[in-house]
Amino acid sequence: MKKNNRIETKVIHAGYHPSDHAGSLTPPLFQTSTFSFPSAEEGESRFAGESEGHIYSRLGNPTITVLEERMAALENGGAALAFTSGMAAVSAVLFHLTKSNDHILCSDGIYGCTFGLLQLLKQKYGIDHDLINMDDEETLRSAIRDETAVIYVETPINPTMKLVDLEMVAKVAKEHDIRVVVDNTFCSPYLQQPLALGCDYVVHSATKYIGGHGDVIAGMVVGADKAEMAEMAASVRKDIGGVISPFDAWLLLRGLKTLAVRLDRHCDNAEKIAEKLKSHPKVGKMFYPGDEEFPQHALAKKQMRRPGGMISFEVKGAKKDAQEILNRVQLIKLAVSLGDTETLIQHPATMTHSVIPKEEREKMGISDTLIRLSVGLEAWEDIWADLKQALDGIE
């Protein structure tokens, strides 16, 4: 396949050709734990790294390889590695890039479990971290220490939708020889490509838009440098062992084929729902990069293909009013996660970000009245009708 094919083509064809496997149009599922060797000498050669060939699915599997090659192509990276979950992917890249007493600089808002991991790294290995506003170069530079090994960024930030200028961060990081890791879960490679903007690693909770159907837990790391990714595969992934199963890799390959059409529909629906939410009397602040009044709307247009399918909004009232809306929805499902075909709604302060202390949550902009909405693929009119009746029902 041509390297310059558009992403809509890559999601279907990259990393695989039917001639590789007896003409099978769909990549086969190699549901096996181990592989036999034709001879003892070949087994020795494979273990020594002198010849290609599979050994054991923790070290490599043909189905997983197709997924990894496809994801690397979609993110324009050197190589990709698949993991059992998004947090396994985040853990792997941070273990790979840090050592005891290093420092990690983070955007001022991160997923609750990522926050929990950072706390664990600090308690057990002395790897410190700071959450900072990355709005400008000087603020970022002033927060860098001699021990800073990684700049870790979410953009859009979960759940406040705040954006970080990735080109700016990559520029400053390169001045200090620091690696930049970007959680690209909210966008997928269809909407945003951090490596093309100068960043070093991309992580995904592939459970979300990559899979797209709510039936698999998985994670991905894509790196700009193929050799560094090989080091990660040979150390952190091999020895810690958070390797995706062949069946889950196969499910992700199936989901990826419709990534472009799904994301366009997610975005179309989100634009309509955001417009309706903005004018509802029970809605206070709305956080959506596609809104022209969103403070970083220009940045969204610069580094994102489209604004995405995620919306957060504050309810006028108190925590009980936000929870009442969640209890009143019918078509929309009260559930965490995002990027599914179904529209999902949740309360970050008591759910996805509940592990973060209240004071830290409030600094991140996560109030008790904030609701996060993952807009699905249903008819947008039906999504809005359900959301409207729930909003109308609070006093």
Rank of each mutant, 00 (worst) to 15 (best):
M1P: 09
H17T: 13
P18I: 05
H21T: 13
A22L: 14
L29Q: 05
F30N: 04
S33T: 10
S36I: 08
E41S: 11
I55S: 09
G60E: 03
E69Q: 14
M71I: 14
S85L: 06
S91Y: 10
H96D: 12
S107T: 09
Y125K: 10
Y125F: 15
L131M: 11
E138T: 13
D146N: 15
A149D: 04
V150N: 04
I151Q: 03
Y152E: 04
P156W: 01
I157P: 00
D165W: 01
D165G: 10
E167L: 10
E167C: 10
V169T: 08
V172E: 07
A173R: 06
H176R: 15
V180L: 08
V182D: 02
L191V: 04
V202E: 05
S205M: 00
A224C: 05
D225I: 00
E228G: 06
E228A: 11
A233E: 12
D239H: 12
I240R: 14
H266D: 12
D268M: 15
L277K: 08
K278D: 08
H280N: 04
F287C: 07
G290I: 10
E292G: 07
H297Q: 02
A298Y: 00
A298Q: 05
K301S: 14
K302G: 06
Q330R: 12
T341Q: 15
T343I: 07
E360D: 15
D368C: 03
G376N: 08
D382N: 14
W384H: 06
K388R: 11
